[in-house]
């Protein structure tokens, strides 16, 4: 009986040894430890959700209309800039429409698209 326990004990040790040692014999180099994949990224999505939250606060009468409009405008400016950045190469080829106008249109299109896709959020 002791013999069986000895075999089982050895198997446990060998399994652990395998887990620890196998990476050194693996051909797969694996990805090197990634560093800063996470950033405090600003996306149109996050602007959109912030605007929605603001709108809900306004509709729930937690903020004044004046503050709501002012903040909404600020968010729209951020969104405009985001859209501008995203669409920069495309716009360089089109000289007929002013950049600001195009950005506005694109912003509206993007927001419309997101609204359709996600529904309104609180």
């Amino acid at each position: 009986m002791d013999f069986i326990y000895l075999i089982v004990g050895s198997a446990i040790i060998l399994t652990c040894f395998y887990f620890v040692v196998s990476p050194f014999f693996s051909r797969n180099e694996g990805r090197s430890s990634e560093t800063d994949s996470w950033e405090s990224t600003l996306t149109l999505d996050s602007v959109y959700s912030a605007v929605n939250e603001l709108e809900m606060d306004y509709l729930m009468k937690k903020i004044k209309e004046k503050d709501f409009l002012q903040l909404k405008e600020q968010y729209q400016m951020i969104a405009t800039e985001l859209v501008k950045q995203e669409g920069k190469p495309k716009r360089e080829t089109n000289n007929n429409v002013s950049q600001a106008e195009e950005a506005e249109l694109e912003l509206l299109r993007e927001l419309q698209k997101l609204r359709k896709k996600k529904g309104r959020s609180s």
């Binding site: 887990f19 620890v20 040692v21 990476p23 694996g30 990805r31």
Partner: peptide, 18 residues
Amino acid sequence: QNNKWIESARGGVLSLLF
């Protein structure tokens, strides 16, 4: 900065679970 050692440490965690 050697990923093999990190992988081996990961194997160590698996062994600890085991």
